[in-house]
């Protein structure tokens, strides 16, 4: 991408572009800081935001979604930062430490990315407390992983729920989807870590995907405190199609209820996500 050429092109349409940009020192500064910090694939995003700022235009909807995402990423990053400094991390197996370090790094990168994009419009980081709701979260490894699973699966549902608000927005929607799938990868791995624990009957049946609970309930985590995170995940009807009426892999069979639940993840509204997150926000 040739920034200078783009600016010159715009100058032919809007001769005052340079004047518009120059007084906005923050916007210009963002070009350079983006250039050094942001991967090339994200430059269109940076450019779009910078122009919006230069022209004094902001899209409230888009910024609201981005700030909602930032709040969630603050939450996740804070959780792993605290957890990875605690005894649950220092006493965890080496492979688990590696995974938790990677996930913490990704969540912090998401925070930095969203903050860069939002610039001065970024919300401040709230103060979080995890031990109010889960007193042993940073002393008991199983609890740490259970809460981690709750946060990751909530994150997946939260991004999914906001996609329609970004409909057709090549830069922002694509970035949001590209975070969404990373959260799903995290969720998959945390779920595998819980399965590997196998200290109880419940953890044995944890799958990398959201399945039906042991008693057919929407919450498959085995942790009743996470009920809100999985509310509605037992849905079997997609786009008006009851998935269990479709032909299964083996001739003469239909898709099972379990597979129907597993093969589609469900979105959560912003309100539902904030209702889950508020227990951690002081």
């Amino acid at each position: 991408m040739d920034f200078i050429k783009i600016l010159k092109d715009i100058e032919t349409i809007d001769p005052e572009i340079t004047d518009r940009l120059n007084p906005r020192r923050a916007a210009i500064k963002n070009i350079t800081s983006f250039g050094s910090k942001v991967a090339l694939s994200s430059l269109p995003f940076a450019l779009g935001t910078m122009f919006k700022r230069a022209y004094g235009q902001t899209s409230n909807t888009v910024n609201d979604v981005l700030n909602f995402a930032l709040t969630l990423e603050y939450l996740e990053a804070d959780f792993y930062t605290k957890g990875n400094a605690s005894v649950v991390y220092s006493t965890a197996p080496a492979a688990a430490q590696g995974a938790l370090t990677q996930i913490a790094k990704d969540e912090n990168a998401h925070v930095a990315f969203l903050k860069s994009v939002l610039g001065t419009a970024a919300v401040a980081k709230p103060t979080f407390n995890f031990t109010n709701s889960f007193p042993t979260v940073f002393t008991d490894y199983a609890t740490y992983l259970a809460v981690a699973q709750g946060l990751e699966d909530t994150g997946v549902r939260a991004y999914k729920g906001q996609a329609p608000a970004l409909l057709g927005n090549k830069v922002v929607l694509t970035a949001a989807l590209s975070i969404h799938s990373v959260e799903a990868r995290h969720a998959s791995h945390i779920r595998q870590m819980r399965r590997a624990l196998s200290t109880s009957g419940v953890t044995n049946v944890i799958t990398p995907w959201i399945s039906l609970g042991a008693n057919g309930q929407a919450n498959d985590s085995g942790v009743p405190a996470l009920d809100k995170t999985f509310a509605g995940e037992d849905n079997k009807t997609q786009g008006g199609v009851d998935i269990t009426t479709l032909n299964g892999a083996v001739a003469g069979t239909k898709i099972s209820a379990k597979a129907a639940v597993e093969c589609f993840d469900e979105p959560l509204t912003m309100a539902a996500v904030l209702d889950i997150a508020k227990q951690f926000i002081v």
């Binding site: 997946v156 991004y159 999914k160 996609a163 989807l177 969404h180 799938s181 990373v182 959260e183 799903a184 990868r185 998959s188 995907w209 997609q238 597993e262 093969c263 589609f264 993840d265 469900e266 979105p267």
Partner: peptide, 8 residues
Amino acid sequence: GKIVSVEA
């Protein structure tokens, strides 16, 4: 979106 996260 419901499908891609399962693929991920």
